[in-house]
Simulated assay, not measured.
Amino acid sequence: MKRMLIIISMVFTAFASGCASREGSAVGGALGGAALGVGGYEYSAHRQMQQVENDYKAGRINKREYEIRKNQIEKGSLFQR
């Protein structure tokens, strides 16, 4: 969660500094949109990881299944490592 706040603050800083010209606004808007998309994807990966951990702790999946699912989530995520 701390990383997400840092990323969001960086995006807003880049967006605000790019508002001085039309080109800067376009680049800032593109960066902001991309960062929000990545942020949403990473939040989804975080929730999936929590669900896998909860399933394992509750005994709904075994250790092997837990490791497989955890590995799949980590491969598709930037921050879930």
Score class of each variant (00 low, 15 high):
Q48I: 11
Q51P: 01
K75E: 11
K75S: 12
I61G: 00
T13Q: 14
G18H: 06
G33C: 04
E42N: 05
L5P: 00
L36C: 05
K70E: 01
N71S: 13
G28N: 09
A16H: 08
R64F: 14
E74K: 11
V52P: 00
G59K: 03
S44N: 14
R47D: 07
G40W: 08
R3S: 14
R69K: 12
Y56I: 02
D55Y: 09
G37Q: 08
E42M: 03
Y66W: 07
E65I: 10
C19F: 15
Q50I: 06
Q48F: 09
R22E: 15
R81Y: 14
Y56V: 02
C19R: 14
A16W: 14
A26Y: 14
A58K: 06
S77N: 09
R64M: 13
Q48E: 12
L36R: 00
G39L: 08
Q80G: 03
G33K: 05
A20L: 03
E42F: 00
L78R: 08
Y41M: 11
G28R: 03
N54G: 00
G24S: 01
G39M: 10
E53M: 06
A14S: 15
Y66G: 01
H46S: 03
A16G: 02
A26C: 02
D55A: 09
G39A: 09
A45K: 14
V52Y: 00
I68N: 10
K70P: 01
Q51Y: 11
Q48Y: 12
I68L: 13
D55P: 04
A30W: 07
Y56L: 02
A58I: 04
C19Q: 15
G37A: 07
F15D: 07
M1W: 06
S17M: 15
S44A: 13
E42T: 03
E74I: 13
I7S: 09
I6Y: 08
G24H: 05
G40S: 06
D55G: 02
I8K: 08
S44F: 15
S44G: 11
V38D: 02
K63R: 09
H46M: 07
R69G: 01
M49N: 05
